[in-house]
Amino acid sequence: MLPLSPTTIKDVPFSERPREKMVKIGAEQLSNQELLAILLRTGTKNESVLQLSQRVLYDFDGLLMLKEATMEELQKIKGIGLAKALELRAALELGRRIYTFQENEKYVIRSPEDVSRYVMDDMRFLTQEHFVILCLNTKNQVIHRQTLFIGSLNSSIVHPRELFKEALRRSAASVICLHNHPSGDPAPSQEDIDVTKRLMEGGKILGIEVLDHIIIGDRKFTSLKEKGCI
């Protein structure tokens, strides 16, 4: 059961109200509930904005699921209408874009760890398998990132034609393949290995090297090249 909070924001001491606290001590010192309350601005007739933000976090198990919440899911919460749902989705999307923003200088891949750092926070929360390629130039700089397929990895879905069509469009010198395991375990399956070998053979014919295939788990990854699978 959720702990009780004051019925209205006026019942909260002035110095403890989210906006006033943020002015005084900064956003980084506020709780998730208080930050969310600032975005929501108002509560409902029967509860304060702090109670409403507490319910939102409770329903979405904290920030983990709220990060991926849809407009429809947000509006199912009593007190969240279209306007509040739009504002929350906009804030979440803006946060995602800021976090993933890359400066004009292209990201350089020197190791599997570099690949992991580049995609981990985007891919470890995905609930379906996404097959992605990174197109690199001759300096191993990322010039393009493309999600090619969504769904369980198999040789009929991941066709070399689609992968190399994208690589040729970008004039890539080489590519790195990667996909996520929603289970969080990045251990490769035999299908993962077979698909990678097939793609590498296609790359040799076209002169576009497949450097590696990285499997993304939850805060961990597996490089098929480092593991000696390819």
Rank of each mutant, 00 (worst) to 15 (best):
A85S: 15
F131P: 03
S156I: 14
L153W: 05
A90C: 03
V158N: 08
K10F: 12
L30H: 06
L40H: 15
P18K: 01
K78Q: 10
G207Y: 09
R17L: 07
E34D: 08
R117W: 00
T100R: 08
M200P: 09
F164M: 12
R96M: 05
A37M: 10
T42P: 02
F131V: 10
E93S: 10
S5Q: 09
D185T: 05
D218N: 14
E28L: 03
R19I: 15
I216T: 01
L39M: 14
E162K: 15
L30F: 07
I38V: 11
L153C: 00
R19P: 07
S111Y: 01
L2V: 00
S116A: 05
N46E: 11
E113C: 02
K24N: 00
N137R: 04
L211S: 03
K67I: 00
L134W: 01
L57R: 02
S156R: 09
A172K: 04
F60N: 02
V12M: 01
A83Q: 13
L63S: 11
V158M: 11
A83P: 13
S171Q: 10
P182G: 02
A167H: 05
L88R: 01
I230F: 15
G43V: 08
E20W: 12
D121S: 11
S5G: 02
N32S: 13
E191S: 11
Q102R: 13
H179Q: 03
Y107Q: 05
G217V: 04
E105I: 14
Y118K: 02
F101N: 04
D194P: 03
I230L: 13
Y99R: 11
T44K: 09
L153V: 07
L88W: 00
E103W: 00
E20A: 11
D61K: 09
I25P: 02
R17A: 05
P186Y: 03
S111F: 05
I150Y: 07
M120C: 04
R96A: 05
I25W: 08
E129D: 08
F14H: 11
I38P: 05
Y107H: 09
E113Q: 12
H213P: 06
E87V: 11
L178E: 08
D218S: 15
K225N: 05
E72Q: 08
R169Y: 10
L64C: 14
E73T: 00
L136D: 05
I25K: 12
R19C: 10
D218G: 12
N46S: 07
K76N: 14
I133D: 05
K78I: 15
I9W: 03
C177P: 02
L30Q: 05
L94E: 11
E34I: 06
L148T: 02
I208A: 06
F125S: 03
S183W: 08
I176Q: 04
F131I: 05
R170Q: 14
R169K: 10
T127V: 12
L4E: 09
A90L: 07
V210I: 14
I150R: 00
D59H: 11
V119W: 02
L63N: 12
N137K: 02
G217R: 00
E113Y: 06
T127R: 15
R219T: 12
M123A: 10
E20F: 13
Q29M: 15
E103N: 01
L88F: 07
D122H: 12
I193S: 01
E226G: 08
M120Y: 04
Y107F: 13
T7N: 10
K78T: 14
R170V: 08
V56G: 04
F164K: 06
A167R: 02
I216N: 08
L126W: 07
